[in-house]
Nucleic acid binder design. Structure first.
Length: 502
RNA sequence: GGCCCCAUCGACUAGUGGUUAGGUCAUCACCCUUUCAAGGUGGUAGCACGGGUUCAAAUCCCGUUGGGGUCACCA
């Protein structure tokens, strides 16, 4: 093991979308592998045929790649330890299950579902831990079932499963990288089914076999697997294999501290993508849920490169973490604030183009879809939006005429004089040769001063007429970017529609 | 219920025997300001409880309480 190249894995079952908890598990596996100069692998656990969802595998991998988590080996991209889909490795499980059988570490079990259920109910009623009652444990490994009966059943060809024989009166101990030493009494470990009656292995069996043959050095997975660790360890022992190091991650929680689930909000990474969150923010956020750099660091914003550089399993916390959307929102804003202008423009341009298919603009298309124009919009709005798409939606007045005027704002800002004042100032704006923010500002001040009025009496109505809303960037810059023609058109239109009293 | 894991502000966390218990989000106030943001300053707010060990405990030990996970021919 010493000096061995680190190999970690993310092993989802293709049953649907990628869960944010899964994203974090994948991320930590990825970060650790990359930090150690090793490899990160994706393996698909599709041993439950009934739950398999079409395209899930593809989507899982696509979503991980969106997040910037690129596997060195995966079913989509191959590798030298394949196949990376468990349903394509059935022969392997079969072979090693036979070995367990002949070594008396496993046995056939012909119990029916009804029998099992009955047994379970009985045990629950007696206040016992539900466990298989070992009815089919053969005589030669300490059970009571004669070999002849087993052979007869086998010959009849009836359905059966294969169970592992958990040794009695031993204790299973291991060292978890995150939690330290953990110990289980074998009396609490069930004779886990290894092979199902459909010939497929269970998760427990397949993952141990694969983890061994794919030569993973570290297993990093959610805490929900902690209590099945002893079964896995026993399997390694049966085979005489050296188990990988393990780290069980704390769970992601709902606001009420239960395991993060649907019903209480979105859990699919795709949901967050749809809502407009960027991969930068999601990765950053999810990374900080359970891990921190420590040593007094007060950094909050980390790039993937920085995460790889700083990550360590030792600094992963033990307690579950609540998935708090407010902080994610804040992070998203941080990224928008600092993202290069060209990058933002390249993202919003297609969104705007799509919007223009639906809605008509009175502004010259070649101008409002130009890089130069969008760059100005971005600079004015980047500190005011929560998501990239808001450069288009939240800022629609940069491209479209206001459809209505904020009623509250109009009520608050209009006086009997407003109409007249706007009329007069419009003339000044129409004759302006230099329609710059600076110039507009001086003209407005010049206009208002002799009347001994405050600039605000015009500023607010102008903003409302130009944008339809009462908030936004500096008025003068807003007007400059919109351009003389548009501004004049909007003032005229609005001043006609709004009359005092409102 | 058995077994296992966990426990610092509302949330994410720093802290590894001696700190005025620090930072970030959220929240509140003020400043800046034409609005909204952004930014700045300041504030409210936390070691679950009880026993030990020690000169000294958020930190080590035990217990209690609370929360979570898991007990499938699902992963």
């Amino acid at each position: 093991m010493v000096g061995q190249r680190v190999r970690t894995r993310f092993a989802p079952s293709p049953t649907g979308y990628l869960h944010v908890g899964g994203l974090r598990t994948a991320l930590y596996n990825y970060l650790y592998a990359k930090k150690m100069g090793g490899d990160f692998i994706i393996r698909i656990e599709d041993t439950d045929q009934s739950r398999k969802v079409e395209d899930a595998q593809k989507n899982l991998i696509k979503t991980l790649e969106w997040a910037g988590i690129i596997a060195d080996e995966s079913p989509e991209h191959g590798g030298s330890y394949g196949p990376y889909v468990q349903s394509e490795r059935l022969g392997l499980y079969d072979k090693y299950c036979k070995q367990l059988l002949s070594d008396n570490h496993a046995y056939y079990c012909f119990a029916t579902h009804e029998e099992l259920e009955e047994n379970r109910q009985l045990q629950i009623k007696q206040g016992l831990q539900p466990k298989y009652n070992r009815k089919w444990l053969p005589e030669e490994i300490g059970g009571s079932m004669p070999a002849s009966v087993i052979k007869k059943k086998l010959d009849e060809g009836g359905p059966y499963v294969i169970r592992m024989k958990v040794p009695d009166y031993i204790s299973v101990w291991f060292e978890d990288i995150i939690r330290g030493p953990v110990e289980f009494d074998s009396a609490t470990i069930d004779d886990q089914v290894l092979m199902k009656s459909d010939g497929f292995p269970t998760y427990h069996f397949a993952s141990v076999i694969d983890d061994h043959f794919m030569e993973f050095t570290h297993i990093i997975r959610g805490e929900e697997w902690l209590s099945s660790m002893p079964k896995h360890l026993l399997l390694y022992e049966f085979f005489g294999w050296e188990p990988p190091k393990v780290a069980h991650l704390p769970l992601l929680l709902n606001a009420d501290r239960s395991k993060l689930s649907k019903r209480q909000g979105d859990v699919a990474v795709e949901d967050y993508i749809r809502k407009g969150y960027s991969n930068d923010a999601i990765i950053n956020f999810v990374a900080m849920l359970g891990w921190n750099e420590g040593e007094g660091s007060e950094q909050e914003v980390y790039s993937m490169e920085q995460l790889i550089e700083k990550f360590s399993l030792e600094r992963v916390g033990k307690a579950g973490a609540v998935f708090n959307i407010e902080k994610l929102n804040w992070l998203e804003k941080q990224y928008i604030k600092n993202r290069p202008t060209e990058k933002l423009v390249s993202v919003i341009k297609p969104l705007l183009l799509a919007e223009l298919e639906q809605k008509k603009s009175l502004m010259p298309l070649e101008i409002i879809t130009s890089d130069a124009y969008l760059e100005k919009v971005v600079e004015l709005m980047r500190e005011r939006v929560g998501f990239e798409y808001e450069f288009v939606t939240f800022s629609s007045y940069f491209y479209f005429e206001p459809e209505s005027y904020d009623e509250e704002a109009v009520k608050k800002r209009w006086t009997p004089d407003t109409h007249e004042l706007l009329q007069e100032f419009l003339i000044i704006l129409q004759t302006l040769d230099d329609f710059s923010a600076e110039n507009i500002e001086t003209e407005l001040k010049k206009f208002v001063e002799p009347k001994s009025m405050k600039a605000a009496v015009l500023i607010h109505p102008l903003r409302i007429l130009a944008s339809g809303v009462s908030f936004g960037p500096s008025l003068y810059h807003l007007l400059e970017v919109l351009g003389q023609e548009t501004v004049i058109r909007r003032i005229k239109a609005g001043n006609e529609k709004i009359s005092f009293p409102v």
